[in-house]
Design a protein around this nucleic acid. Structure first.
Lengths: 252, 252
DNA sequence: ATACGACTTTGAGGCCACTCAATGACGTCA
DNA sequence: TGACGTCATTGAGTGGCCTCAAAGTCGTAT
């Protein structure tokens, strides 16, 4: 929009030097093949909070990897309100759901200052022709997304407010952990409002549950800073059998 | 289980002779290439109502296409109850969500007598190596599934009982229509219980909504036979902007 | 430092869908 | 054909979460 931004963090880290490569697309490629992926990746300036990566209805050209920061995707309900469909953390890939309609079915917006790697889909497809493993990885990504969405459907149709929020916190914790951050103590990128929107709850309900969890020693929360105090009980609320839950318990 | 069943319908229709080929996997292939797909497809005996195609946790070996009948997929909630995740009608493909874990994340059960085409995944993958278009089609299928699941999440988190059931009926009608059946009048494969389970509603609520819809002239329902009397209003309840809705309106 | 807006918390009250319970309809099998 | 089990319907009562409202807190920009 204005002149080139003054970025402290180098904006052009190659995949081979990126600390996230073992979680991101490159994990499907050998060291020498990574460079080919690297060449098609576009790394733009950081997005500021509130800026959009793409809008619902934009033509589907690329998939994106989050390098730092956080992205939310959302769509409009029939009444024109926003319905958040996903939150994306560093190393996670978004945009794939646009593939079969040639337009993105959701909008993607930065929730804080965010760095993004853009992978033009057409070139990704030709690369997939060369590297079957990359192709399989893409399909696994989508398959995983389907499973996660089904977990989410289960949450929305069967869980009460306490269970929803416990599940959400445990899930976030586990994702932070995989990325080398603390799973006990972290900062939420989203507001209570956004959390409620995503979880199918009113803001007030989210707030009340947080208060109650804190009163009962499950968590300690100040604003967006969260500390998980009783992972075991939180996991149990979330419905212990999930892998996520076990990961956190083992981390404590 | 017993001797070979006496099937009225020929159990070994080749893809090229199957009336569903234009909706199913073959749509990605040219006429001569279809035969290659055809050779890897296994067509077993029909499943009787209640029989399982696979169980949650079974090793992921194949994807399946429904040829006739209907399949539901479900998983167990933490309390051990069944949570239905999808219904599949003829020409629809299921099983793809097992891809990234090597086990099926759900169980699949016949809701009525059902004929199935089984496509061993390993062979489907090698075929994909030969035919980029087949590969793209598979990815589009998954992408579509993701979009549908997100519609479902929206339904579960934002819609009330009336809207959920209207959406469900409109969606079914549109799927029947695509398959050349009437979209005005059809037979539900699922019980009220299963419908409620899928839609996140109690059976009693489903029943009450059906009664009310009937009283208001939106539908006429006797048991599992459904007639859509006022597609426009039903679409509006479902949240008019969906493509499904428009299709039905244009059909009336 | 201060003022403003955005976000969060807390309370009061109401509604929608759930649960429990009982009756009615359907389909199936002996 | 009758008896049984399953499924569907209807009613009464309850509770969890929503809505509305107001006060409190935080962050930010001037």
């Amino acid at each position: 929009m204005t002149s080139k931004p003054n970025v402290r963090q180098p904006s052009h880290v190659a995949c081979r030097d990126c600390s996230l490569s073992s979680l991101c697309l490159p994990l499907a490629l050998s060291l020498q093949d990574i460079d080919q992926l690297d060449r098609i990746i576009k790394r733009g300036r950081p997005l500021k909070k509130g800026e959009h990566l793409f809008l619902e209805g934009d033509s589907f050209d690329s998939v994106f990897a989050v390098r730092s920061g956080a992205i939310k995707t959302y769509t409009a309900t029939n009444e024109g309100e926003e319905q958040i469909t996903s939150f994306y953390l560093p190393s996670e890939i978004l945009g794939l759901s646009g593939m079969d309609t040639d337009v993105y079915p959701v909008s993607a917006q930065a929730m804080e200052t965010t760095m993004i790697c853009e992978i033009p889909f057409e070139q990704l497809e030709s690369l997939s022709d060369q590297f079957p493993e990359l192709r399989r990885h893409l399909m696994r990504l989508m398959s995983k997304k389907i499973r996660e969405d089904q977990q989410m459907m289960m949450l929305l149709s069967k869980k009460n407010a306490d269970e929803r929020i416990a599940t959400f916190l445990i899930n976030l914790a586990s994702r932070f952990r995989r990325r080398g951050f603390s799973s006990q103590s972290f900062r939420l990128a989203m507001s209570r409002n956004e959390m409620g929107n995503y979880l199918g709850l009113a803001v007030e309900t989210v707030s009340r549950v947080f208060t109650r969890f804190q009163k009962n020693g499950l968590i300690y929360a100040v604003g967006k800073e969260i500390e998980i105090r009783d992972p075991a009980q939180l996991c149990q609320l979330a419905g212990g059998k999930t892998v996520d839950a076990e990961q956190i318990i083992s981390a404590s």
